[in-house]
Design a protein around this nucleic acid. Structure first.
Lengths: 127, 127
DNA sequence: CCACACTATATACTTAATGAATATAGTTTG
DNA sequence: CAAACTATATTCATTAAGTATATAGTGTGG
């Protein structure tokens, strides 16, 4: 069929649902952070620079603040343009705990699927 | 703060992106299947009955056929209403291989995040 | 035989997550 | 002062998924 089946592997459309949000909660867990600076830290979570979408990041942070998971204030007098510095809230920490549970389930599902995949493709090759 | 932070754990909005699609490809890997029947099989992938959305299933199957990952034909003369029976294509098998790669990456990311989560929350409790 | 429950497939409407592109503005540096 | 850089924000479009509803054939009990 047309294109699309090779494309999709290199496409950036495979961020797991709301995974960025969880990463941000974890990054903010024990120290504050601001948008641009968080991008660099996200690389340590296995994100490539190209994968990281600045718009998505800022949008996500604002959404999280609206939901009360983080709070923000404008940084006082550092050098360079002013930064909106985010801090995690108690609600945010609880939320992260819930996410940990969800991700554990996700992980188990992926593992189960990959296992079945191995089984089936190995049978295939044996024939 | 309102509601929403407890709700979200029980909500059904946590299907991983296109995970159903991959499950379907795997289920169809070595035997044909039809919509309604596939639902029961999906339970073995860790899906609860409530999580499984009939509309989503059929929609996904039609989309996959449009993309050439599966092909379908109407079953000849079984009892009960006629069934559209799906079969995986070669393109579908290749697609599944690619998904296996993507899911391996997803799994690794989740593991890394959960590890960091454990670290941080253990430090927190020690204080 | 007809109403009803059940099996099976399909589509319309809506919401939510995300990417791409663009806008705005202050800062630093040459 | 112009250009490059840092930083934040918003608009537009696309895609995935949930909810609700539509359609229709089949089998069964009264």
């Amino acid at each position: 069929m047309e294109q699309g089946h090779d494309l999709f592997c290199t496409s950036k459309h495979h961020m797991m649902e709301r995974f960025l949000e969880v990463c941000l909660l974890l990054l903010l867990y024990d120290e504050t952070g601001y948008g641009y600076g968080l991008i660099e830290k996200l690389v340590h979570f296995g994100f490539s620079q190209e994968e990281l979408n600045v718009s998505t990041l800022y949008r996500t942070l604002r959404k999280m603040e609206k939901e009360g998971l983080v709070s923000s204030l404008w940084e006082e007098g550092g050098q360079g343009p002013r930064r909106r510095v985010y801090e995690i809230t108690e609600a945010g920490k609880k939320n992260l705990d819930q996410w940990a549970g969800i991700l554990t389930i996700r992980k188990a599902r992926i593992e189960k699927l990959l296992l079945k995949y191995e089984e089936k493709t190995q049978n295939e090759r044996r024939r």
